[in-house]
Design a binder for these strands. Structure first.
Lengths: 232, 232
DNA sequence: ACCTGAACACCGTTCAAGT
DNA sequence: ACCTGAACACCGTTCAAGT
């Protein structure tokens, strides 16, 4: 502490897994998925690429660890609602907002949850399904439907963010949506009557509102089948 | 045609975009997502990597073209059901089975549909929603819910296939599921009571049956809200 | 017009050598 | 125990040169 070596001049804190993951998140948030490089990361940490391998096994593990940090933060912030339905909405929205803020987690969310914070999300949603009165035999099916929907929306939003950034980094989200809506509106009326017809709904929609509407549709379907109407 | 040059000896047909995409699909099906390489592809086509760039813009376009071929084939094979609900089931299952047979399309399905065959899938599903009696103002929301769910399941299945292949290429699907179920069953009862409780349902479930159940749940929710009970 | 294949500018990862 | 950075074995992509 008292002696100041060249190393401590270049780097305030010693290297650690935590600091590496933190730097990786910064890099991913700033430069996108393509920005996470062992060389860029090493430069940011004022070391060589080899040093990182002492603390993490490889790039996959690093990305997974970064995703887990984001999800765990989102979980900690998720409010507990007054009803099971509101709590499920809150948990689902926490995941939605996490992807919105860090689109690069979208691709990694679907990996086998194993012991990740994502397992905790679905544990909590599952308990609310129980509270809703879904019988034991139907719980796996009910949870699976919600899981596919939530992770699917995440993946879709991540893909959209990527496409938007790739087409023109300076472009706004609403410009991107408007371009897509224009595209739909210009489709052949004989081949795509339905898609043409909802082009203006695409233009005017709010991703977050649509997401919650989907959650409610699925919960309606679940409760109609399995939960007593008084409980829903 | 009559003269036989060294080139025609090494390659029966001339290079073409179609042949390149076809070879890419074979490579992806055989060796997985990591197997698609311009060098491997060039070798298979008995040419140099540069030749491929004359016919396709780059790797992204190649992967997209390959995905589109698989989806288009799946669409062509999708049967038209007796009711709107059965037709939607058939279309959704066609996508499900396509991902099952070619897991590498899972990651690419969520890209902006633009003019891809995927747009045709959702056009057809949308028309069935119309036939079901979903009013115009709710059609975008209803379709979005189905879309997120279908693509989400696809992404999840693709991720599972990847994880399974990565952990142990020789392992069977049921071994993989059993290992996950064992994992769930061994979780801390205080922290994960719900997940523990559905471990045996995970072990016994059938992906395809669960997928259709989810489609039905969503359609129940949609019809309960928007379609007259006689029409559902 | 189409193909060739060496070359360029990157990657993730390893590893002998240092402290 | 932890770090360094050159080196290895790859990539996608380009491009001068061929036919």
């Amino acid at each position: 502490m008292a002696t100041r070596t060249r190393r401590t001049e270049r780097r305030e804190k010693p290297l650690s897994r935590e600091r590496i993951v933190e730097a990786a998140i910064e890099l991913l948030d700033t430069a996108g998925e393509g920005g996470l490089t062992f060389r860029a990361l090493a430069e940011r940490l004022a070391t060589g690429p080899g040093a990182i391998y002492w603390h993490v096994a490889g790039k996959d593990e690093l990305l997974t660890a970064a995703t887990d940090v984001i999800v765990a933060e989102a979980m900690a912030a998720a409010p507990s609602g007054a009803t099971p339905r509101e709590t499920i909405r809150g948990l689902a929205l926490a995941v939605f907002d996490a992807v919105d803020g860090h689109p690069w987690i979208g691709g990694d969310l679907s990996r086998a949850p194993a012991r990740s914070p994502m397992l905790r999300v679905f544990e909590r949603i599952g308990r609310q399904l129980q509270a809703l009165g879904v019988p034991h035999a139907a719980q796996f099916t009910a949870l699976s439907a919600l899981q596919s929907y939530i992770l699917g929306t995440g993946g879709l939003n991540a893909a959209n963010a990527r496409a938007q950034h790739q087409r023109d980094p300076g472009t706004d989200r609403s410009d991107f949506i408007n371009a897509a809506a224009d595209d739909w509106a210009s489709l052949d009326p004989d081949e795509y009557p339905f898609t043409r017809g909802i082009a203006e709904q695409l233009r005017a929609h709010d991703d977050r509102v649509e997401f919650v509407a989907g959650i409610d549709i699925i919960l309606d379907g679940i409760t109609a089948r399995w939960a007593p109407p008084v409980g829903g």
